[in-house]
Nucleic acid binder design. Structure first.
Length: 390
DNA sequence: GTTGAGCGTT
């Protein structure tokens, strides 16, 4: 396969503190396609440590970089470039790095527009060549067909654009269903893979085109709701954030009484890769699992960090601090709820009152017995009602 | 100013 002894990674020192990874990548792209750049930061001060590791796709290019970019001036300092010796960890194939690297201080970089396009969108980019530069030591074969890595020039991330007008409005609610039910059911029918695709697409859009993302989410609240619930389901977001997000004033109950725009139910599926065409090449940052050959960049959601531990005692009761009568007596009606929750309930039709009461009075055991989708819905309902009492 | 991280477990 490959001459497996020399390192594909070079060690770069004497980097000015204000140089960004993109800048470095740009500089080293002179030698050939760059796979990854990691400036090391002091976790305490957040400042660059002045050195970095630049990884190429092959050893030849790395050697070439060492020879050709030795002492090149960058922002007034001459870089020192060597082949890297040590590997970061026992893992050779990929380390999930970048954990907790603080933001670059004064650097021009905002951050990697990470997120591979959803489902198989692969930008067909011509492989960056070492155009015009002194040739590598060996006639190394320039990698072909790579669709990621740092482009030699043009560090500007590809902006994802979507056709907002092409996003379906959704379909009318079936009789007897409320929007949140409908969204939950729809989500339940979405495969995890699809969900990840959607998340990845949305992430790309948000990072490269926040304005359009805002427009999309504002104009399609059901999408925003579904995405958020999906994040709960995928453990991307901890349910505790629901405590902090309470922009649901008087109209607390999402159930009836509130009819959002032409709402969903079975929307065909969020425009995945088709309407999110990655125009040309791909994000500069293959965070970790960068695979050279095909476009295999997969979005990996954060490892499930179990949040399933419910508060120890009295989870079914309002948090401490409520001035509820707090009768330890068995639940029998609204009286076990905070006053404001009772008020909110009172605005609902009888049948929904009953249903909500049941939901709000489920025991932890009962909740745990439900499937993930229902669990998330119920937890949210509970937050809306019980939390609104604060 | 000079060689890199550690969640939680297949």
């Amino acid at each position: 396969m490959a001459p497996g002894h020399a390192s594909k990674t070079i060690f770069v020192a004497n980097i000015p503190y204000d140089v960004s990874e993109e800048q470095l990548a740009n500089t080293f792209a002179e030698a050939g396609p760059v796979q990854n750049v990691e400036i090391k930061f002091d976790p305490q001060t957040g400042r660059s440590k002045g050195y970095a590791f630049v990884q190429f796709w092959d050893e030849g290019t790395a050697l070439s970089a060492v020879r050709n970019l030795q002492e090149v001036p960058v922002n007034g300092r001459n870089l020192r470039v060597e082949l890297s010796t040590d590997e970061p960890g026992p893992r050779r194939g990929g380390r999930g790095s970048r954990g907790g690297v603080p933001g670059h201080p004064g650097g021009p970089v905002g951050g990697p527009p990470g997120g591979a396009g959803g489902g198989g969108g692969s930008g067909g980019g011509a492989p960056p060549g070492a155009g015009g530069f002194r040739p590598p030591i060996h006639e190394d074969t320039p990698p072909r067909g790579f669709d990621q890595g740092y482009p030699p020039r043009d560090p500007i991330p590809t902006v994802v654009r979507i056709d907002l007008a092409a996003v379906p409005d959704g379909t009318p609610l079936p009789p007897g269903q409320n929007p949140t039910d409908s969204i939950s059911k729809t989500l339940a029918a979405v495969s995890p893979g699809q969900m990840q695709d959607v998340m990845a697409s949305m992430k790309s859009l948000i990072t490269t085109n926040p304005e359009q993302a805002r427009q999309l989410l504002s104009s399609k609240p059901q999408l925003a709701y579904a995405l958020f619930q999906a994040m709960l389901l995928m453990n991307i977001v901890d349910p505790s954030v629901l405590h902090r997000i309470q922009p649901l004033p008087p109209v607390a109950p999402p159930p009836a009484a509130y009819a959002p725009p032409p709402t969903q139910n079975a929307y065909p599926s969020y425009p995945p890769a088709s309407s999110v065409p990655p125009p040309a090449n791909y994000p500069p940052y293959p965070p970790a699992n960068a695979v050279p050959p095909p476009s295999g960049a997969g979005y990996r959601p954060p490892p499930t960090q179990g949040y399933n531990a419910p508060p120890p005692a009295g989870y079914g009761a309002p948090p401490a601090g409520y001035s509820t009568p707090a009768p330890p007596a068995p639940v029998g009606g609204m009286s076990s709820l905070p006053p404001s929750a009772q008020q909110a309930l009172a605005t609902l039709p009888k049948d929904q009152q009953d249903m909500l009461l049941q939901v709000l009075q489920l025991t932890p055991d009962q909740i745990n017995a439900l499937d993930a989708t229902q669990k998330a819905s119920i937890m949210q309902l509970r937050q809306q009602f019980l939390g609104a009492a604060a």
